[in-house]
């Protein structure tokens, strides 16, 4: 009998752990991966595969070089890889996912001190890096390929079509957007697949429901306002379904490390992303805005946490306050 002593509580919830949270995310991402393979066939497999492999390799090499215990198996590197892979265009040459993932892991996570310490969403750091370094590989033309074997690959992405023409002639109908039969980044196209995975994630409480709801509400309200004011020629539904907003809402904004701790903070953060996305789409020269919106709001998270420190139940003693 080996008796041990420790601080209470001596009891804990069963079947939890960081790894099981990450596993939840991977399970939730699987409908999105399936949809993207259905739409983009093996291009999706290659991009996501390259990203995951590079992410894991980078993390293990970094840990080895810095003499730290291996953290590769905690699953967070794989999640970063999958999300980065799914946010790339199908056509990106092999070095784009490889460099992107390495940067995502090193600059996005390890330099801050590893899992839990990073300020910015690692996958978005990697994507921002390659977007600036290989502008062509992620530009509007990277998505379109007139001679492609699959019909969707011959079209422009909905948002870049909208950016380049005022008539919205290239914009698919809402049903096609919902099912995912359109061009775009690998994982963003099928709203249905994203909703299935995303709702699973919220039910499992691995993601806080406030985050996706806040992003969608923020985007819907702002885009509605923009439409009324004539600042944007897209409807609310086109904003919600035409780009990577839903993917961002359910899988990028929900990264616990880079989002606020309290429910109130989560609302501020998420609604902020939704609003910023519409601003960026309408006023910046990029057709899409989720990545920069997330990075921008990530930077504000420490401030939001500070603004939203809850008052303990009961408040302070009246005489002492």
């Amino acid at each position: 009998m080996a008796l041990s002593v420790a601080s209470s509580p001596h009891f804990s919830r069963k079947a939890n752990g960081t790894r099981s949270m990450m596993l939840d995310v991977i399970i939730a991402l699987s409908p999105v991966i399936v949809a993207s393979i259905w739409i983009f066939s093996w291009y999706a497999v290659v991009q996501v595969g390259l990203c995951v492999l590079t992410s894991l390799a980078t993390e293990s090499i970094w840990q080895k070089l810095s003499n730290r215990p291996g953290s590769v198996l905690d699953g967070s590197g794989a999640v970063t890889g999958i999300i980065l892979g799914l946010s790339l265009p199908w056509s990106a040459p092999w070095y784009v996912p490889v460099i992107g993932s390495a940067v995502a892991i090193i600059l996005g996570k390890m330099v801050f001190g590893g899992l839990g310490m990073n300020l910015f969403n690692p996958a978005m750091v990697g994507r921002a890096f390659i977007m600036l370094s290989f502008a062509g590989a992620l530009g509007a033309s990277a998505y379109v390929y007139p001679d492609a074997p699959m019909a969707v690959l011959t079209q422009a992405t909905p948002l870049s079509a909208a950016k380049s023409s005022a008539t919205l002639s290239g914009f698919p109908d809402i049903w096609a957007l919902f099912m995912g039969n359109r061009n775009g980044s690998l994982g963003e196209t099928s709203a249905l697949a994203i909703l299935i995975g995303g709702i699973f994630l919220c039910i499992r409480r691995t993601a806080s429901w406030q985050l996706p709801v806040g992003v969608v509400v923020g985007c819907a309200v702002t885009s509605g306002l923009f439409q009324i004011l004539g600042l944007s020629n897209l409807t609310i539904l086109q904003h919600l379904l035409g780009g990577s907003l839903l993917f961002g809402a359910f899988f990028i904004a929900t990264d616990p490390v880079t989002s606020p701790l309290t429910p109130k903070g989560k609302w501020i953060f998420a609604i902020g992303i939704g609003i910023t996305v519409v601003f960026l789409r309408s006023f910046s020269s990029y057709p899409a805005g989720v990545m920069f919106a997330v990075l921008l709001m990530n930077a504000v998270v420490p401030l939001i946490n500070r603004w939203t420190i809850p008052t303990p139940v009961g408040g302070p003693l009246p005489s002492k306050s």
């Binding site: 960081t18 949270m21 899992l115 691995t206 616990p256 490390v257 701790l261 309290t262």
Partner: peptide
């Protein structure tokens, strides 16, 4: 029934905030 495994890094998931009956931010 007791917890024995090694603690891992806080991922700021906020579950401690979600259960604290006094509305604190334990992490």
């Amino acid at each position: 029934s007791i917890r024995r495994e090694q603690a891992t890094a806080c991922v700021r998931c906020g579950m401690c905030v979600d259960v604290c009956p006094l509305d604190l931010v334990p992490t």
